[in-house]
């Protein structure tokens, strides 16, 4: 896997390079701002772009805007956005185009190296990785009636599914059996009027599509 990193903090940029190197992921270039990023992406056409939201020169949302440009120009390129804060509005903007190969995580998540690498690989494979914070914010905003029909446990499961987890992942997170999770998932689908599907990926897309309204 070939990755381009955009992160303005040198400390963190080098740390991320080391982290990915250690996991056998090739970092083809690491840059410090959005313009450099777009140039590097055009140069290398990597499999995945790992980027920060706040970067020079304005330190506001140039990373996010760069991500949207990348998604438009290279629709199949995976993008994983990192940020000190996740915002529902940014998540919606990211998910507005195409929901495969998209990730949006709090920067804190890189501390749990194993989980972070798993999320990164999932995104590179066309999956999704949404931070639980983003999911809860999206759920808060999505107030159509079907969601209110879900039990608290089912909302929890839906949140974990939206993060991009498989049934096994959800079962791990909730410390329950996989069959229990499967039951919840089927309940969610029927309550949300979604046809049951067997693929994890299609399942997540369905959930996200629902979250986006």
């Amino acid at each position: 896997m070939r990755v381009v990193i955009a992160e303005d903090s040198v400390l963190l940029r080098e740390g991320l390079v080391r982290l990915l190197d250690g996991a056998g992921i090739q970092v083809v270039e690491a840059v410090g701002d959005a313009d450099e990023l777009l140039r590097a992406v055009a140069d290398h056409e990597p499999d995945l772009v790992l980027l920060d939201v706040r970067m020079p020169p304005t330190h506001t949302d140039e990373g996010l805007r760069a991500a949207l440009v990348i998604r438009r120009q290279w629709p199949t390129m995976a993008v994983l956005v990192l940020s000190q804060y996740v915002e529902e509005r940014y998540a919606s903007e990211l998910l507005a185009t195409e929901t495969s190969g998209i990730g949006y995580l709090l920067k804190d998540r890189v501390a749990d190296v194993g989980e972070f690498l798993a999320a990164l690989r999932r995104v590179a494979d066309g999956g999704t990785a949404l931070d639980p914070e983003a999911v809860s914010q999206l759920l808060l905003r999505k107030r159509s009636d079907p969601l209110t029909r879900l039990s608290p446990r089912e909302r929890q499961v839906l949140g974990l599914m939206a993060e991009g987890r498989s049934n096994a992942g959800v079962a791990d997170a909730l410390v329950v059996s996989e069959s229990a999770v499967a039951k919840h998932v089927n309940n969610i689908f029927s309550k949300l009027d979604l046809p049951p599907a067997d693929s994890d990926h299609r399942r997540v897309l369905a959930v996200l599509r629902f979250l986006k309204g």
């Binding site: 706040r54 506001t60 949302d61 804060y85 996740v86 915002e87 529902e88 509005r89 940014y90 914070e133 809860s136 914010q137 759920l139 808060l140 905003r141």
Partner: peptide, 18 residues
């Protein structure tokens, strides 16, 4: 920061969800 960038509506999601 999102208050400046996307306004009040966007900023309220974060605190409400937390």
């Amino acid at each position: 920061a999102v208050l400046d960038e996307r306004g009040l509506d966007a900023a309220l999601s974060g605190i409400s969800a937390r």
